[in-house]
Amino acid sequence: MMSVLIVIPARYASTRYPGKPLVQLRGADGEAKTLIRRSWEAAMTVSGVARVVVATDDARIEAEAHRFGAEVVMTSDQCANGTERVAEALASLGGGYDIVVNLQGDAPLTPAWFIEELVAGLAANPWAELATPVLRCEGAMLESLIEDRRHDRVGGTTAVFGAGNRGLYFSKEVIPFTGRGYGATEPTPVFHHVGVYAYRPETLAAYPDWPVGPLETLEGLEQLRFLENGRAVLCVEVAARGRQFWELNNPSDVARIEAMMAEMGLN
Rank of each mutant, 00 (worst) to 15 (best):
E228T: 05
G183R: 11
Y207F: 15
L215W: 12
E129F: 11
R136F: 02
D152G: 04
T157H: 01
E228L: 06
G155R: 02
R166T: 12
T217V: 08
S171P: 06
T188I: 01
L168P: 04
T203E: 12
A128R: 09
E138I: 14
T203M: 11
L130R: 01
A124G: 10
V154D: 12
G155C: 05
E143Y: 13
L204D: 13
G195M: 13
P126A: 15
A120W: 03
L145F: 02
G164I: 11
L145V: 00
V190A: 07
R200T: 10
F191I: 07
E202N: 03
T158P: 00
K172A: 07
A232L: 11
N229L: 02
L118E: 12
V119N: 05
A123R: 14
I175Q: 08
R200D: 13
V194N: 07
A120R: 14
L118V: 03
Y182D: 08
E222M: 09
A163L: 12
I175L: 04
E222P: 02
F191Q: 06
R149W: 00
T157V: 15
G121P: 07
Y199F: 15
G167S: 08
E222C: 04
R153F: 02
R166M: 14
P211W: 02
H193S: 10
L224V: 03
P187H: 15
N125V: 11
V194Y: 04
N229T: 03
L224D: 09
V194K: 10
C137F: 04
I146N: 11
V119A: 04
T188N: 04
E173L: 04
V134L: 02
P176L: 07
P189C: 05
L145C: 07
E173T: 10
G183K: 05
P214M: 10
L224P: 06
V190Q: 06
G195W: 03
Y199P: 02
A140T: 05
L168C: 11
V233S: 07
R180T: 15
L215P: 00
E216G: 01
G156C: 06
E138K: 11
F177E: 12
M141K: 12
G220N: 03
A198F: 08
R166I: 13
P126Y: 06
G164W: 00
P126W: 11
E202V: 14
D152V: 10
L145Q: 03
S171H: 05
G121R: 03
Q223I: 15
T157A: 10
A198S: 08
N229F: 09
L168W: 09
R231S: 02
F161A: 02
F170T: 12
A131Y: 09
A124H: 03
E202H: 10
A124C: 05
G220D: 06
G155N: 01
L130V: 13
R149A: 15
A120N: 08
G220C: 04
V160A: 01
Q223E: 13
G220Y: 00
T217K: 14
D148Y: 01
F191T: 13
W127F: 09
T185V: 09
